[in-house]
Design a protein around this nucleic acid. Structure first.
Length: 755
DNA sequence: TGATTGGTCGTATAGACAGCATGTC
DNA sequence: CTATACGACCAATCA
């Protein structure tokens, strides 16, 4: 089928497709068109990664827009949202405008409602529905990307419920669900009243196999010799072998530490294959990587990047990740060693994929648990770059013959697991039942059950008894915590319940916060950080060896600051969790006390990405706590707001006025303060030479800051920097800056003890 | 003698959405 | 209750 044969597209689009090299549709794409995706019919496409799913979605959305509608593209990750938005912007010439809406970035409200295509995460869509965004009612087409994630215990139910709500709001809505190949795609299609297109077709040949001894054995029985030298590791031999053919490698391992260690070893291999030009480019890239942050992670990454390899995991900052991903896509980096993040994230295809570790530690399982077939197949799916590689290879590693047989059975010749709804789990129910009541989708127990009948859970499950019993116990919980009220049969959300639903909080988090704040007289930042850290919406840090003692001690030392009653050290299982929350809270307190980033990452054994993540979540939760305090007219509002501002800017109290000035962050604010410029008004009146000195003689920066502070004459012409007492950043590892009295001083004492 | 190999022991274990209102060094 | 790999350390072995 040719693009010109596709009905329903805006004029010019088929020709545009042909011009951009798409002369014939891939078979699954043609099947989707035959099933009516461009004529408003719903569809489930269960096809391999990189087999042209995105074009199917684009055809559906373009045709829907052409008929005068608007489309929504739902993704599981923020990074994917920006990737897709950029991709869809190629339709700008056809008057199709694209907007984006995620937690950290959003096109403005009225602008968004004028878009033809909006890209958003499933949580954001859920939140938009809860907050009654008007344009949601006018949608004509929704695309759900990676719909197999309904199986995810944490986030799957959100996708499931959101799709159910969108369909209820608009019964004529066209739903296009894109899925990896799963066993029971037909059930998903039944649920969505959609046609099913199922295919194994791939544009680039994929060969999967197992390496054992000195060769890879592929699924078709063929072999490729890849001898492993004496003392050499199989992974290194495979990376080397791929490079001999001019191909890159993507290695999946099961822990961050392994990713970093393996990347160091691979770097020695990739280093041997570099041209002089590549070496220059890599040196520049390494500099860029190193300058992202002054942390060990940054240095370690730069050290391997220089040799053409990299590691990739969630401890990296967003900048690190995109630098690595882009350079790998540009074929500058020859090998990446990654945790499973990469398999689910943005598009990073590679000639060869090596799944080195196929088991991962799982605390609940109590040991090393084999990865799901679906997960491994997702990794396999990264092999082969369309248009660049003649074929892709995915290889598992076996160290003995039995393992080889097992891997063939378990992964190479196996079908992926069926996906199943996780909606009946209580944490998911808590959030979604409250939201369903609060946004008026149901007003009674029966109404709730009726709504739930539209979900995948109901479509998959014969008996509803389990669902009913979870619903009942969750209603009890919501009533007991004053989120909903019962009047006879009717269930309505209280004001508090409405607020919690709109804030997108887990009701259990809200209950914890409300309890803690009610108990609080004059809460300290640490007390508030601990409060939000022990909610289920915050992932806590692990306790490492020795941490138990450290934080038990800290817990007693600062017991008066902690909100609520400390669980008993000896009787209560919650004590452990209380300590992890304390460790996490302490990290936030360090951050809000201007401890350097590298100091924090080292002290808590986390990466810069984790630090950002914790700070981000704390910001969100403290913002929510502030709103709750306002709602309940509690005295702690001011204390919460200040604690929030301090994590947001990463500074002590006395710098908050300065960091309120645009382009002044934690570093510059501290330098200015130390030079005697202590507030926004000081900035307007201070001696210019002092300001310039504090800013290390950066004239442009100084001018910008003075201007932002509202100074009349910001010009730095003819001003020379004054000497300042501030030491110059290279502070010999002493992260804690600032000793000036006020609120900071009493905290300083315990900080010292903590070392 | 120094380099390489081989054993034990201790230790640590993937990921990341959301409100609101704007912007680091 | 459940596993495994890595790195650090130290001892044994070989050129």
């Amino acid at each position: 089928m040719n693009p010109t044969d596709v009905p329903g597209l805006p004029p010019g689009v088929p020709e545009f497709l042909v011009d951009s090299g798409i002369e014939a549709l891939y078979p699954p794409q043609a099947a989707a068109v035959d099933a009516g995706v461009t004529e408003g019919d719903s569809l489930v496409a269960s096809v391999p990664t990189a087999s042209g799913k995105t074009l199917v979605a684009e055809l559906a959305m373009l045709s829907s827009v052409h008929r005068g509608g608007t489309a929504l593209y739902v993704v599981p990750l923020r990074a994917l949202a920006s990737e897709k938005k950029a991709e869809f912007e190629r339709w700008a010439d056809f008057d199709v405008e694209v907007g984006i809406s995620t937690g950290n970035y959003e096109s403005s409200e009225e602008w968004l409602s004028s878009r033809d295509i909006v890209v958003a995460t499933s949580e954001k869509v859920d939140s938009l529905v809860r907050n009654g965004a008007p344009w949601i009612d006018d949608l004509t087409c929704v695309v759900a990307d990676e719909v197999h994630l309904v199986d995810d215990p944490n986030r799957g139910p959100t996708l499931e419920v959101t799709l159910a709500k969108l369909r209820r709001i608009n019964p004529d809505l066209q739903v296009v669900a894109l899925s990896a190949t799963v066993d029971n795609a037909d059930e998903v299609a039944d649920w969505l009243d959609a046609e099913l297109v199922k295919s194994d077709w791939r544009p680039v040949d994929l060969r999967t196999g197992v390496h054992y001894g000195d060769a890879i054995t592929f699924d078709d029985g063929s072999q490729r010799e890849v001898p492993v030298g004496r003392g050499e590791r199989p992974t290194a031999a495979l990376v080397d072998d791929a490079l001999d053919d001019g191909g890159s490698s993507l290695v999946f391992v099961n822990s961050r530490r392994n990713a970093e260690a393996a990347a160091r070893r691979q770097a020695d291999v990739t280093d041997r294959h570099l041209t002089d030009d590549e070496r220059d480019e890599l040196a520049a890239l390494a500099d860029e990587v190193a300058s992202v942050s002054e942390t060990e992670t940054s240095e370690d990454l730069a050290a391997v990047v220089e040799k053409g390899a990299a590691f990739h995991h969630a401890g990296l900052s967003a900048e690190h990740r995109s630098l690595v991903e882009d350079a790998f896509r540009d074929r500058l980096l020859k090998a990446i060693c990654a945790t499973p993040t990469l398999a689910a994230g943005v598009n990073t295809p590679s000639r060869r994929v090596i799944v080195r570790d196929w088991r991962r530690y799982d605390g609940e399982f109590g040991g090393m648990k084999p990865l799901d077939v679906l997960e491994v197949h997702q990794m396999f799916g990264r092999a082969g770059r369309p248009g660049l590689d003649p074929y892709g290879e995915a290889v598992l590693l076996a160290k003995d013959h039995d393992t080889m047989d097992e891997l063939f059975d378990r992964y190479v010749h196996a079908d992926p697991e069926p996906v199943g709804s996780k909606l009946a789990r209580e944490p998911a129910m808590r959030t979604h039942l409250l939201a369903t009541v609060a946004s008026g989708f149901a007003r009674t127990r029966e109404g709730l059950l009726d709504f739930l009948d539209r979900t995948l859970y109901a479509a998959q499950s014969e008996e509803t008894a389990r669902l009913e019993s979870v619903v009942d116990s969750v209603i009890e919980y919501l009533v007991a915590n004053d989120f909903v009220e019962r009047n006879g049969d009717e269930i309505t959300a209280t004001n508090l319940g409405h607020t919690v639903s709109r804030l997108y909080l887990d009701p259990m988090s809200a209950a914890e916060i409300v309890d803690g704040l009610r108990d609080a007289d004059d809460p300290t930042p640490l007390g508030l950080y601990h409060l939000v850290c022990r909610t289920p919406d915050m992932y806590q840090l692990y306790l490492k060896s020795g941490d138990r003692e450290t934080y038990t001690e800290l817990c007693y030392e600062r017991e008066t600051e902690l909100l609520g009653r400390v669980p008993s050290e000896f009787e209560d299982v919650r004590f452990e969790e209380w300590l992890s929350a304390l460790k996490t809270a302490k990290l936030l307190e360090d951050w809000a006390s201007e401890v350097d980033e590298d100091r924090i990452t080292e002290r808590y054994g986390v990466g810069p990405g984790d630090l950002r993540g914790k700070v981000d979540t704390a910001e969100w939760l403290l913002g929510a706590a502030e709103r709750l305090a306002v709602e309940l007219e509690l005295d702690s509002v001011v204390a919460v707001r200040e604690a929030k501002k301090r994590v947001e800017d990463g500074v002590r109290e006395e710098l908050l006025d300065l960091t309120g000035v645009r382009s002044v962050g934690r570093k510059r604010a501290r330098r200015l303060f130390e030079a005697g410029v202590e507030s926004r008004s000081d900035l307007r009146e201070a001696e210019k030479s002092v300001v310039l000195g504090a800013l290390r003689g950066r004239e442009r920066t100084a001018e910008r800051i003075l201007e932002n502070a509202g100074r009349q004459d910001p010009s730095m012409d003819d001003v020379s920097a004054a000497e300042t007492a501030v030491d110059d950043g290279d502070d010999g590892g002493k992260g804690e800056t600032g000793r000036s009295g006020g609120a900071g001083a009493d905290q300083q004492a315990s900080l010292g003890d903590f070392e």
